[in-house]
């Protein structure tokens, strides 16, 4: 996979490059700010972008702005945003259009090499990767709504769905059988009033409902 990375810290760039190369991916460009990132994506058309949030010149949300721009202009490029802090508000910006090919993780997660690479590959394959901390932030803002009808276990399942995990992965994380996960998911669809048409579509809708509420 061809990857462009953006981070104003040389130290962190070097770390990410190592991890990516260890996993057999090619880093085609390294940039230090949002404008340079957009230019590099224009030139290299990478499969995926790994970008920091706080970058020059304002050190605010350049990475998020650039990521949203990339998702608009080059929807086939997967975007994984990394940050020292995750904020649900930035996540909402990132996921405003759709939840495909996008990820938002704490930088800490890069240190868990295997799961980081797994998340990047999942995003590049069209999935979602949301940091559990972002999900926790979204959870504290639940007003009284259909989501309140979910049992704690169903909430766990939905949170993992929002992180972009497949049923097998959810089953592994929660240490239950895959059929049990399927049952939970059906309950979630029912409680959120999602009609049984396309299964994948319902899944996205459930996650969106969960994120947007």
């Amino acid at each position: 996979m061809r990857v462009v990375i953006a981070d104003d810290s040389v130290l962190i760039r070097a770390g990410v490059v190592r991890v990516l190369e260890l996993a057999g991916h090619e880093v085609v460009a390294e940039t230090g700010d949002g404008t340079a990132l957009l230019a590099a994506v224009e030139r290299h058309r990478p499969d995926a972008v790994v970008a920091d949030v706080r970058m020059p010149p304002t050190f605010k949300d350049e990475g998020i702005v650039a990521a949203v721009r990339i998702r608009e202009r080059w929807p086939e490029t997967a975007v994984l945003v990394l940050s020292q802090f995750v904020e649900e508000r930035y996540a909402t910006d990132l996921l405003a259009r759709d939840t495909a090919r996008v990820g938002y993780l704490l930088k800490d997660r890069v240190a868990d090499i295997d799961s980081f690479i797994e998340a990047l590959e999942r995003v590049a394959a069209g999935g979602t990767a949301l940091d559990p901390e972002v999900v926790a932030q979204l959870l504290v803002r639940r007003p009284a709504d259909p989501l309140d009808r979910l049992t704690p276990r169903e909430r766990d399942v939905l949170a993992l769905m929002a992180e972009g995990r497949a049923n097998t992965a959810i089953a592994t994380v929660l240490a239950v059988s895959e059929s049990a996960v399927g049952k939970h998911i059906n309950n979630i669809f029912m409680k959120l009033d999602l009609q049984p048409d396309d299964l994948g579509h319902r899944r996205v809708l459930a996650v969106l409902r969960y994120l947007a509420a």
Partner: peptide, 20 residues
């Protein structure tokens, strides 16, 4: 953000690579 956090992250990544 610019100092300790970046160094720690770099350290964590390197230890992660070593571990893997």
């Amino acid at each position: 953000h610019d100092g300790a956090q970046q160094r720690l992250m770099s350290l964590a990544v390197h230890l992660g690579i070593a571990r893997k």
